[in-house]
């Protein structure tokens, strides 16, 4: 029974946590890809920026959340989303729009976004230093231990407060995005533009507005993902580094330009990661006595060590590019 709890803690919960983060990030990437037709490499740094804004605001008003009974960082999240959305629109105006106006190939925009990555990283490090910092400045991180009502289950299931916020906010964000894309006039126009930009223009849809809306949504989502990740662990300026590959793998697995696919892809990549680094030896241990003598169970039966975690999204990426480059849900742009 304890082994099962161990599995739930290390795979189910931990996979849902990374899955949610990757899903929110991948939705942003896939929206940008479907509207502007380029892989936006600076996306993970927009996440870091969002988390950094929360850090700044929380440090400035550390006690603000206590009166409402929520961590200050969560209270500051909407403000950080606003700031990150503004940053995204600003970056587009300064860096990407002139390149688009020149009619460059999409790969030049990719290189431009790498330049933006470095600019953002440099700025964040310049102001925050290089160390890790907790977003829980004045609050205490609650940890919930749920004991299982079974005999023999001594270890509890452990969920932390930021993880619960993460699950709830992810759900809200996905539902909100769904409603926006399917019910609102702008959301439908966004889908139309991702389907056929020329026709969208010929229909009188103002493509500049759609581009701006896309950046606002992507920026706000990036702030959510970055903040919730930093809440769960800590804030680090090089956060983006470990996010970029999983996010792009998730977007491509789901089918580029396909927001729901990106959500699914995010969870696929998140669970694949945790399953790959999980030590399966633990689950087999109860059966140790019934195993034949010649079969000695090694103490470590993980597919890859945690230090090679990055191999997992890469492997998924390669596999999907080889077998199904349009992704699971048939993306639009290849």
């Amino acid at each position: 029974m304890n082994e099962l709890v161990f599995f739930i803690n290390n795979v189910v919960i931990s996979g849902s946590v990374s899955g949610s983060i990757y899903a929110i990030g991948a939705v942003g990437v896939t929206l940008i890809f479907s509207i502007m037709r380029f892989a936006h490499f600076a996306h993970a740094d927009m996440m870091t920026f969002g988390a950094f804004m929360v850090l700044l605001l929380t440090t400035a008003f550390p006690a603000a959340g206590a009166s409402l009974g929520v961590p200050t960082a969560v209270l500051m999240l909407p403000l950080a989303m606003l700031l990150t959305a503004a940053l995204a629109v600003g970056i587009d105006k300064i860096f990407y729009k002139p390149l688009r106006a020149h009619g460059v190939k999409s790969i030049v925009l990719v290189i431009g976004s790498l330049g933006v990555t470095l600019i953002l990283q440099g700025l964040i490090r310049l102001f925050s230093g290089t160390g890790a910092q907790s977003l829980y400045v004045d609050d205490r991180k609650e940890i919930f231990r749920l004991a299982l009502p079974f005999e023999g289950a001594r270890a509890p299931i452990v969920v932390t407060e930021p993880q619960i916020y993460l699950f709830v906010i992810t759900l809200v964000a996905v539902v909100a995005l769904h409603l926006f894309l399917n019910r609102s006039r702008l959301g439908k126009a966004m889908r139309a533009m991702s389907d056929n930009p020329e026709l969208a223009q010929a229909s009188g849809i103002n493509t500049h507005t759609i581009v701006a809306v896309t950046w606002i949504i992507a920026g706000a989502l990036a702030a959510i993902a970055g903040t919730l990740l930093s809440l769960d662990v800590t804030f680090k300026p090089d956060l983006s580094f470990f996010l970029l590959l999983p996010i792009f793998a998730a977007a491509i697995v789901g089918g580029v330009g396909h927001p729901y696919g990106a959500v699914v892809g995010g969870f696929v990549v998140g669970f694949a990661e945790t399953l790959a680094v999980f030590n399966w030896s633990v689950l087999l241990r109860p059966f140790r006595d019934s195993l034949p003598l010649w079969l000695e169970l090694p103490s470590n039966l993980a597919f890859v060590g945690t230090e090679y975690k990055i191999v997992v999204p890469f492997f998924i990426l390669v596999a999907i590019l080889v077998w199904r480059p349009t992704g699971l849900f048939k993306g639009k742009v290849i």
Partner: peptide, 29 residues
């Protein structure tokens, strides 16, 4: 479009993933 002109291209003249009604709604954007 605002001044009263409408254009139907020869190819790629619908939004394939949008429903028929959504296609039409886009015309009245």
């Amino acid at each position: 479009v605002q001044r009263g002109m409408g254009f139907v291209p020869q190819e790629k003249n619908v939004f394939p993933s949008l429903s028929v009604q959504e296609n039409l709604e886009m015309g009245a954007f």
